[in-house]
Amino acid sequence: MSNFINDIYNKIEVLSPLHAKKLKKNIAEFDDLYYERANNFMLKYNKYLKTNNKTIDYAIDCYLKMIADVTTETIEFIYTDKYTSSTFDEVNKRVYANPETMEYYMHGLLLSQFLWKHHYQIYDYYINTLPKYSDKVTNYLEIGAGHGLYLSKALEILDKNTVFSVVDISQTSIDLAKNFIEDSRINFNLSNIFDFKKENCYDFISMGEVLEHVEDPLKLLLKLNSLLTVDGTVFITTPTNAPAIDHIFLFRNVKEIQELITQSGFEISSEKYFLSEDVSPEKAEKHKISIMYGAFLKKSKN
């Protein structure tokens, strides 16, 4: 198989050598399965790009624009110890309802699922664990599906009679997910999750990297709880210390996330978290290196 993912690293290296160096260091330990999955993803993504008259250079340009944003936000974070946005309205205007920004951001984020160590590790956790639920899930909801990568895997893994629904506040995300996945089984809803009225309950709810995008994450988890069947399962991911143009709520450590989960009436069935950089725990603490947290949750019994 030709090595699409290495081509991406090589192209990034030409445009941003410092960044490519870091990426390569971080994934140095990854095994063959990583390359197999990443190359399969690239096959699918290349097909999408071609059909939509875009090129891989376009995608890399998007990715590097996102990296430029992250760099700016990271420097602000070092100075202020806060994320730059504090309200949903601000972020909605700046990002979700701004197709130009949202477009490069979602393509960048999609590539980052394989280029960033912690993104790939949490994705690996998801697709390795989801099959355990495949015979129990009939009604799957994904909140903030964004680019749609996780959803595309759920469609492969879960039973073919499963009903799939998506809620996302951004038309740009919905368009991208629709065209990237190309599966008529999905009901897309353009809505803020807080305004989403349930028609029924879902036995699986997936919500990757949305919790840090709201002003009140407890309220969001309570909303998820209200949408979930009694025996249902939630999968969430959220990062600590991750400055970005659309992040509002700052989790400073994993414990804060775990406490919020318990507070909102869930218990943790399984969890994993990964440092975003290949550094020692001391360095990570000192430089507030982001940690990606992911967990499968169920309703707590008491």
């Binding site: 410092l18 870091k22 260091k25 990271t74 420097i75």
Partner: peptide, 14 residues
């Protein structure tokens, strides 16, 4: 940056 392995985009920001 080619001369110093430890100088990458992470340490660059610092």
């Amino acid at each position: 940056a080619n001369d110093i392995d430890e100088w990458d985009s992470l340490t660059h920001i610092q």
